[in-house]
Amino acid sequence: MTTAPRTADAAALALGDDALVLSHRLGEWAGHAPVLEEEVALANIALDLLGQARVLLSLVGDEDELAYLREERAFRNVQLVEQPNGDFAHTITRQLYFSVYQHLLYDRLATTDSELAPLAAKAAKEVAYHRDHAEQWTLRLGDGTAESHERMQRGLDALWRFTGELFQPVQGLDVDGESLRTEWTAVVTSVVRKATLTVPEGPQTGAWTAGAGRQGLHTESFGRMLAEMQHLHRSHPGASW
């Protein structure tokens, strides 16, 4: 962690942290989901992501050291995935924005000669399902009741400013950010419109947040999330579990 990372490490760390952090947020839903069937669905997605995180982090070093002993500023995930769950519509929005990105990214990555290509090929299948889950729910919430429509629109609007970061270049990832953005926008626009919702028009980045998560700049709630996640592990230095 102290030595300068290889380029492939930087990419693995970025994607691994995305998966780790989103998995953690989804894990917070356990026991709180709107219906039992959805408890099972959300947990499945969380478990897929955690599995991806473990493979990716293990490429870089010891998965637990990386997850539990890094400070907030050393995490390389995008800010989108660390955003708190909010209501179900907020969570579904986060899932939609992120899983479409992740799916497009992994599909591309799978065809490169990157060290991450085999992992990306496997993960792309999982992520395709996550994306489908998010799309199905976006349709139902958007085109459901007046209340669900309003909540879903609020979710889309609130998280929109975290989406610009998804297309910033990542060291070690040989993927063209602009074509990714074009395709992402097309997919999201189509789903959002089909759900009778409106694609937000505001900026996709805040004043100083462009690419910030990937540089180790995070939002306030992330620190609290890490404090909770790391507390037990850090309380017993050197212990094994």
Binding site: A30, V40, A43, L50, L232
Partner: peptide
């Protein structure tokens, strides 16, 4: 699910975290 989900976010290793999530999910099932 509740008493165990209480520890999902604090599980001390990623392996344990995956196991616990899968277990709590089973209980919903």
């Amino acid at each position: 699910m509740q008493p165990e989900a209480n520890w999902i976010t604090r599980a001390p290793s990623l392996r344990r975290k995956a196991i616990l999530m899968a277990k709590v999910q089973d209980e919903a099932g």
